[in-house]
Design a protein around this nucleic acid. Structure first.
Lengths: 157, 157
DNA sequence: CTGCCTGCAAACTCTTTGCACGAAT
DNA sequence: ATTCGTGCAAAGAGTTTGCAGGCAG
């Protein structure tokens, strides 16, 4: 069921758990599989639904307890778009600086590479006597096609 | 008690209310005064505390109901730094694009002018067939001085 | 076996809302 | 007088946590 490319990543996850003295449980593995089955940004609730399809013993609490582990291990990245709920995405291997374009019409989140962000963070932080830790650049936008033709080509739902 | 410079802004607020057919109540005025007495970014709770010192009949609900009015009238600007609670700041007259540098050590939020953000939003959005609505650029950073000398010069608390 | 991990449900934080009273126009 | 605005308290949404039992190492 798991794709070939995920197996290597799953081993990463297992060894991260081992290194931290954490246990490899069925629930954690189900949550891992659920996360890597997602094709776009997902919420904790999305993840719970999917994980329960794999192992119906997975509880909401465990999802919330596992997400920090997966972000700390750099398997996932947290994306806060200011809507109250947090989103997560699979983290690319390259430590690329990513920005998000959020379409307010179709609710999709596009990840865009934004390498200059790092330069910006360094420049502006050093002036304040600070060192940058994280940076985020987000653009909320509306669909042009939707307004003109009544249809949004990106709409997936 | 109100500073001279706030009186003109308060008139702006009153005329905005009138224009929208909203009533000028003591609570709304107290919340206005409380907001403009703030020297830095503040939360709804901060605003409630301050407003109650001016008029102790102000309730939490009214603060939450008044904040949207003040942001829609462009007197305040909402700043979401992804901490669960929303922050607000007095909005400068110029419609400048602002970025935030958030110090994780002293919890201060610095507003930085970032004019290129608009260009970025336009460029990236148009490629996706979108028109930008809002943009935000935020850098989370740590205080260099704090780590080296154990003291953060920016620490105000 | 030992103790970390789990599910459950309650608790928490921030914000929103229904309702009846009160005040602005 | 009309309404809109208000305080109160309850309800929401998303997330966290205490506890008793379960399973990995």
């Amino acid at each position: 069921m798991a794709s070939v490319s995920n197996d290597a990543t799953k081993d990463q996850f297992k060894s991260y758990l081992a290194r931290k003295g954490l246990r490899v449980t069925n629930q954690r593995l189900a949550i891992f599989d659920a996360a890597f089955a997602q094709t776009k940004h997902f919420t904790a609730e999305d993840l719970l639904d999917q994980a329960r399809r794999i192992d119906d013993s997975v509880s909401r609490a465990t999802v919330y307890r596992t997400l920090p582990i997966m972000t700390e291990s750099a398997l996932l990245r947290e994306v806060d778009i200011g809507t109250g709920e947090k989103y997560y995405v699979r983290n690319p291997q390259e430590n690329a600086q990513m920005a998000q374009v959020i379409c307010l019409d179709c609710d999709r989140i596009f990840e865009i590479s934004a390498p200059f962000m790092e330069w910006y963070g360094n420049t502006v932080s050093s002036k304040l006597g600070l060192t940058p830790v994280t940076q985020r650049l987000q653009v909320s936008a509306r669909c042009i096609a939707l307004r003109e033709t009544g249809a949004c080509k990106n709409k997936v739902t």
